[in-house]
Nucleic acid binder design. Sequence first.
DNA 1: CGGTATCCCTAAGGATACTG
DNA 2: CAGTATCCTTAGGGATACCG
Lengths: 134, 134
Amino acid sequence: MNAHETAERGDPTADLVTSVFASACTSRAAFEDVTGKWASLALIALGEGTHRFGELRRRVEGVSEKMLSQALQALERDGMVTRTVVTAIPPRVEYDLTPLGKRVAGQLRLLADLLEATAGDVGKAREAFGQRTT
Amino acid sequence: MNAHETAERGDPTADLVTSVFASACTSRAAFEDVTGKWASLALIALGEGTHRFGELRRRVEGVSEKMLSQALQALERDGMVTRTVVTAIPPRVEYDLTPLGKRVAGQLRLLADLLEATAGDVGKAREAFGQRTT
DNA sequence: CGGTATCCCTAAGGATACTG
DNA sequence: CAGTATCCTTAGGGATACCG
C-alpha cells in the first residue's frame, strides 16, 4: 500500500521519491491531471454517480466536447474512471469512478465544499484588494 | 457561515447560486485559482510555514519566476496568501497563509497525500492502458 | 533578492464539420 | 448519442533584460 514499495520488485517505471513537488514524479502528473480545470469538475460530478457523456457536458458548465473528452481519457488512463459503451439504440456511454477515483473525487468534493462555503470571503477579499488595471 | 447568506444584506457581488459547476460563480473562480498548476503547489508548500519567494521557487520544481509571481498574486487577491516586504539588506519578501488559505492548503495537502500514496496504482493503470500514439 | 516588463513561441482550447 | 478530426484563435508560459 505504501507508494514507495512499488520499486521493490524492480519496477522500472516506479518513482524513487514520491512527491508532488518533484516535476518528474508520477504523483505530480496524477495531481496535475486530477486538479485540471475540467477533470476536477468531471470527477466531482462522477462522485455523485454514473453519468453519460452528454450529462457531464451539461453539468460542467463551459466545457467543450473536446476538452471533456480529453479530460475523461486522461482520467481513464490514470485508473480513476471507467468508460462503458452500451450498444443500444441510441448508443450510450457511461462513465463511472473506480475505487481510486472515488477516493480522489471525495477529496475534491471537500475542497469544493470549502470554497463554496467561503465564496463570500473570497469576494470580499477581491474587492478589498482593489481593481486590477489588467 | 453559510455562503448563501452572503446575499442577505444586499451585497451586489455575492453569487445567488454558489456552485463550482456554475461558470460565473465566485466559488468556481476560486476553485480554479486554487487548483491551478502552480498555485496548488505553492499553497501546499506554504502550508508547511512561511516561505520566501526564492524558497518557493526552488521548492516547486519547474515553476518560473513569472508563473510563481502570477500565482501568488492571484492567491493574495483571493485572500489566501499574505505578502510581507521586509525592508532590510538584502531585502526579503515573506509569504504566509491566511486562515482561509490554511484551510484550503490543508485540503490540498490531503489530496496530494492521497495521490502520493497511490502513485503506484496510477503507474500500473497507465501501463495497462497501453501506450498512446499521440 | 524579488520581482516586473517585454518578446516570443508553443500548446490549450473553442467552433465547426464529419463518423461509428 | 458520443465522440474524433480539422482549423484557427487565444493565452499560457519560458527566456531575457531590467528596476526597486
